[in-house]
Design a protein around this nucleic acid. Sequence first.
DNA 1: TATTGTTATACTCTATAACTATA
DNA 2: TATAGTTATAGAGTATAACAATA
Lengths: 164, 164
Amino acid sequence: MAAPQPARLTSPSREPEAGGRDRYFSKLVQERPDIALCRATTLVTRTLDEELAGRRLTMAQHLVLKMLSDVGPCSQQELSEQLRIDRSVMVGCIDGLEDSGLVRRERHPRDRRAYAVTLTPEAAPVLEEAEGGVPHLLDRAFGALTAAERRTLTRLMGKILDVG
Amino acid sequence: MAAPQPARLTSPSREPEAGGRDRYFSKLVQERPDIALCRATTLVTRTLDEELAGRRLTMAQHLVLKMLSDVGPCSQQELSEQLRIDRSVMVGCIDGLEDSGLVRRERHPRDRRAYAVTLTPEAAPVLEEAEGGVPHLLDRAFGALTAAERRTLTRLMGKILDVG
DNA sequence: TATTGTTATACTCTATAACTATA
DNA sequence: TATAGTTATAGAGTATAACAATA
């Protein structure tokens, strides 16, 4: 049986849409890497949001715990700079972690303007759980890419971000 | 003279930060392609916004004109689907183009629910100007990548988007 | 004078629901 | 009943400015 086709505004065309009005997106992303990048990120972000929905930490909170675990106590300013999260957003992020008992805002010993955001003992298992979920999250978001392609993607993004 | 260093919360460390509290972002994007992708897109989007600031068309309006020019009159629904722009956003996009006299909302001959969004003669030079700016725009956004790397990026984004 | 944390505001994107007119 | 266009609203993310405490 014929699949229900949406009405077409131009020639019904004998061939199966050989100009590609119904595949125009494909053409677009092949000639505009900027559009392709933005649309792909929208898709990846949606997958991430779904994946994080049932978990205890937001992505930002996860990254904060990870950085504190990796480098030790930090000021909110340092966390903001390195994680590329605005300091006005970082406030609420740390609020949530403090309410959950995962970090404490201690005073910086030599600069009383800044906090020394510090992990509590309760943070370790929560961070471990979040880290354990990362591979599955990446598999959902980048399932279409091989391991080598993911490494290539990482390298290209690194160049755009001017790191490494 | 010594550059003014921000106060550090942990060991002043003899080596130049060999754990990398000041380069943590670099470490992060190398192990998290999802974060790298999102941060790179933020950067690219900022460049695009700056580039488009002084121009007559928004990115969405540019893409609409381009698609109409490539495939002929379309319904707003078709434009929304192929350009991945929500139909509620497409309304204002077409409004702007109509106010500028670049498109007309004609009635679809066989479906009076839909419009046949149609280019006016005034559209051609405006589209041509916008298209002419694309290479420069891409050079600014992806200046860190070689031509081959841009093609690779396009291919990877295509796989994520499941096109091509 | 500059910086840290904080609050407030604004603007864009995205998502959703509802409504109308048509089919 | 389903779809096309429209409007309104709500939520994230980002950007900005201002303020108090401190340097």
